[in-house]
């Protein structure tokens, strides 16, 4: 029998995390509600990958951007090489390559006991999407963001740095209080583009080498499931597209708020607006 929308929400709202009803909708009983809810449920994975990859990648990218603009060749060259490799090759191939490397790792299970808490660890986790694919996305966004931060760092006005030196600010404080805020402000519009592009790129995870476990996949995984089961691409894919447009608009609003904060000391007429321009990225 067909489900009502509320029943579908209960059964499939958290299905992508393995909670709720195990069996996916099949055959003639597939309702529109089930499609909207299950595809929305898959969006949790897209958000998981995007939020964590951006949060971790942000710090790695800052370090890489600084390394790349260093005078020391032993700092500059590894950073430049890393950025070249991850920006110059397709993310899709990176998934396949890293998966092949991770699968060949020796299988080790370890556990660590801290008082009453026991932490288990297994190298098998690397071959699972939640860790393995996350690592690839972190490395990838780090490279793209590093290039953005490197470019912004080179645009920081020299006078600002001179003034900070004249005030006797030590190097660490100079970076933290003068260079970094300006760098972020200059980089933010491009970084917003990168964040949206990375969010969209998370759809690749379950279509590359990483296997899904118990049919727990992302939004596009379920959209593809429905398109195959119903032989009708005109419903499931537009639903997925609608979900992605919604989250993209929220992302733009969030990054716009941060941009306003970073520009709060600039006269309104001279502020740079955040505009999402995909052509200048990636």
């Amino acid at each position: 029998m067909a489900m009502t929308c509320m029943e579908a929400l209960g059964a499939y709202g958290l299905r992508s995390l393995g909670m709720g009803q195990r069996a996916l909708p099949k055959g003639d009983e597939i309702t529109l509600c089930e499609q909207v809810i299950l595809i929305g449920s898959g969006l949790i994975w897209n958000l998981y990958f995007a939020v964590l990859a951006l949060a971790i990648g942000f710090f790695i990218a800052t370090a890489l951007g600084l390394m790349k603009s260093s005078d020391q060749p032993w700092l500059r060259q590894p950073a430049a090489g890393f950025v070249f490799i991850f920006r110059g090759s397709p993310l899709f191939i990176q998934f396949f390559f890293v998966y092949a490397v991770l699968v060949s790792l020796p299988k080790i299970d370890a556990s660590l006991t801290l008082g009453s808490l026991e932490l288990g660890f297994s190298t098998r986790w690397f071959t699972k999407a939640w860790l393995g694919a996350l690592i690839v996305l972190v490395l990838n966004t780090s490279a793209y963001a590093a290039e953005i931060f490197y470019g912004a760092l080179r645009s920081v006005p020299h006078g600002d740095v001179e003034a900070a030196k004249a005030y006797g600010l030590p190097p660490v404080a100079r970076f933290r209080r003068v260079v970094w805020p300006t760098l972020l402000r200059l980089a933010w519009p491009a970084y917003t583009n990168e964040a949206i592009f990375l969010f969209h790129a998370t759809t690749l995870v379950f279509f590359s080498s990483f296997p899904t476990w118990r049919q727990s996949g992302d939004a596009l995984y379920y959209a593809n499931y429905f398109a195959e089961k119903t032989f009708n691409p005109f419903v499931a894919y537009p639903i997925a597209a609608g979900w992605f447009i919604l989250v993209t608009l929220i992302l733009i609003a969030l990054f716009g708020t941060v941009n306003a904060y970073l520009n709060r000391h600039i006269a309104p007429g001279e502020r740079r607006r955040v505009r999402y321009r995909p052509q200048f990225m990636r």
Partner: peptide, 20 residues
């Protein structure tokens, strides 16, 4: 449309939709 929708959705959707 390409600003809000991942390109992969088009790559999966367009061939199937065109064919049908």
């Amino acid at each position: 449309m390409v600003r809000g929708i991942p390109d992969l959705i088009f790559f999966l959707f367009v061939p199937l939709a065109m064919d049908q």
